[in-house]
């Protein structure tokens, strides 16, 4: 069954009133993979994801999501995917539990609502009306509704916006558990640490094109990037950028005969690499 990719996109194009939003994207996401799509606002991220979700029509290109063209997908297909959108509201006067129990009825084989409520950390809020939830709690509810139908493929559009750091880490644990269970996940996010922590592969989209596509560790040739070595010499900060930090440290260790004062070695973070890629492509 899992011979084809979960998401298979070839030459996807979409423009609005003559302005190109997506300019010919190729993308393949394997079953079970966690894929993060990064890019500045207006780069074509949302357009791409919404075409994959079946919300928008494309101008050209081939798109298969779970083997089916989302442009003419039916409800069975919708039962196999889960979507966490940005900015969705509604059902404000229902309680958390009422909303989740109701949405569970839509799916042929929904998860146990109680389990889902616990999984997203809303146990203490099950009787609270949706309108009384905080921004972060609403986002947890969105996530709960997204995973309720045991999706094979889960779309997460900036899922942790409004989360405090602790909630974000709890969310990462949840996503890892879903991934371990075999769920394919397509994530968009502005948090580079989130992408680095969760994603098997990262795609950077800028001006409607994918400009880099790799694992977080190798994105944009990160692993070959120069390292910056910092240390103190007579209390004065020293800094040298090198392709061979190990050799430099060995030399310094010999020079200092042991501990190198204030030693630090930095490589560009995923965020540095991302910003460089965006800068080069806009």
């Amino acid at each position: 069954m899992n011979t084809t990719a979960a998401v298979d996109v070839r030459g996807l194009r979409k423009s609005y009133d003559g302005t190109t939003a997506v300019g010919g994207i190729d993308l393949e996401i394997a079953h079970g993979e966690v894929f993060a799509l990064l890019g500045p606002n207006g780069a074509g991220k949302t357009t791409t994801v919404e075409i994959l979700e079946g919300y928008r029509k494309r101008d050209s290109g081939e798109v298969h999501v779970l083997g089916i063209d989302p442009g003419d997908a039916d409800l069975r297909w919708r039962a196999r995917i889960g979507i966490v959108l940005q900015n969705t509201g509604g059902h404000d006067d229902l309680s958390v539990e009422e909303v989740i129990r109701h949405f569970a009825l839509y799916y042929p084989d929904a998860r146990d609502p109680d389990e889902v409520i616990a999984a997203v950390g809303l146990d203490g809020k099950r009787d609270t009306r949706v309108r009384q939830l905080s921004g972060g709690q609403r986002r947890r509810l969105d996530v709960a509704l997204g995973i309720l139908g045991r999706p094979e493929l889960l779309f997460l559009d900036e899922p942790t916006t409004g989360f405090d750091p602790e909630a974000r880490r709890e969310f990462w644990t949840l996503i890892s558990a879903l991934s371990d269970g075999g769920t394919t996940i397509l994530l968009t996010t502005h948090y580079l640490d989130e992408a680095e922590r969760l994603a098997d592969r990262v795609g950077v989209i800028a001006a409607g094109d994918i400009v880099a596509l790799d694992s977080p560790a190798r994105l944009g040739g990160r692993e070959r990037d120069l390292a910056t070595v910092r240390w103190l010499h007579d209390g004065n900060p020293q800094e040298r950028t090198t392709a061979e930090p190990t050799r430099l440290v060995t030399e310094l260790a010999a020079e200092f005969d042991g501990e190198i004062p204030g030693l630090a070695i930095d490589r560009p973070t995923l965020e540095d690499t991302y910003l460089r890629l965006i800068g080069e492509n806009t």
């Binding site: 039962a79 959108l85 839509y106």
Partner: peptide, 13 residues
């Protein structure tokens, strides 16, 4: 407020 969009993203007929 996106309620309809969310519903459309589920298998609700």
């Amino acid at each position: 407020d996106g309620t309809l969009k969310r519903l459309r993203g589920t298998p609700m007929p």
